[in-house]
Design a protein around this nucleic acid. Sequence first.
DNA 1: ATTATCTATAGATCTATAGATAATGC
DNA 2: ATTATCTATAGATCTATAGATAATGC
Lengths: 208, 208
Amino acid sequence: MDTDIQNKEQTILIAAEEEFLLYGYDGAKTMSIAKRAGVTHAMLHYYYRTKLNLFNKILEEKMTILLSSFMNPFMNNDLPLIERILKGAEAHFDFLSKNPRLPRFVVNEIITKPEMLDLIKSRLQTFYQYMLPSLQYEIDEQVKSGKIHKIDFLNLIVDIVSLNVFPFIVLPILEPLIDKHYKEKQAFFEARKAENIKTIKMRLLLNQ
Amino acid sequence: MDTDIQNKEQTILIAAEEEFLLYGYDGAKTMSIAKRAGVTHAMLHYYYRTKLNLFNKILEEKMTILLSSFMNPFMNNDLPLIERILKGAEAHFDFLSKNPRLPRFVVNEIITKPEMLDLIKSRLQTFYQYMLPSLQYEIDEQVKSGKIHKIDFLNLIVDIVSLNVFPFIVLPILEPLIDKHYKEKQAFFEARKAENIKTIKMRLLLNQ
DNA sequence: ATTATCTATAGATCTATAGATAATGC
DNA sequence: ATTATCTATAGATCTATAGATAATGC
């Protein structure tokens, strides 16, 4: 197997990622991580010194990509507002489909860790301080010209993120329902994506 | 203080509830629970034998009330369908406002514990086996008579629960945004409730 | 020589229990 | 007599490190 050639440092990081995503910080044990990586647990400390070090590396990376998955789409200024919102919501959903276990991990681990909570708050601050007012202005213009319903942009974002993220958070609970109504999990994802876009569209546009 | 009169067994249960809700099963320590209850940790074992016993009592109760908070409203057959849905969503939201930390606790702890996952699945099974088909039938009737848009009932439920629950799950992250835009957290809740009902209404009703 | 890996073990933390002591109810 | 509570400690588990050994790169 060619993975044997890969260096252990990387292998440990990947094993840690899986254990942390599955069981969280407290639930994941350094010995389980080492076992999964196929080394003794001493190696974990050799490369990363402490469990917390290793964990923070992973959490911060995951938090960053999860945040940008929903912030980036709105940064693209080429498209008119409504398309930007809808394409943005779609891109956000697609990202989640590819990383279904990320939201629960990030949400849980961040909220129980004050330093991480502060970090994510400060990153969001940047977003809502600079982006939100200008987006709200754009919205208000569209409202004035009678294209969309009145809406607060903060609430619109909460709507989009709620609709997109929540089903992934409770995915294991939904499984029997999905199995009954859809052939493949992928089909459920497609249906949810369409449903979310439709809901957002109807919330925004007049005469739908 | 009159709480001293209350029996220790109950005090321990309440202390355990708070610790488990804050830190989860792994994060909560029996000694912290005992400390919070104002007894030695031996008492915890005297009344509940094991940490897991104590935990399961709490988790199962919380899971039950969380599930019925969204199932009950649909059982009330007195009202016409659309009102039942909207009032149901409202009641669900109100319950969450009063128990803001429940969703994250239940979701996390259930998903990492196979026995609990099976339990919640079997309870949901009952709901969607008996309730869902009849509700879907009612929906289809309304669609035929041109009152509402075509929708799959399962997706409608996922919409409602997503919109209602997700903001509570990420509440600590939203805090700075809430502080900036609303005087009180309660005002944010009211705004969210109105927004959710409006979104569901628009998703359902024609000519809104 | 330096880097990577392992074995063995210290030290901390946590759950659980045994056995003694105090409080309570007949 | 029974129930409630505490002290002391066993035993398990987990993180971290010291020190030995093997592998690698000049």
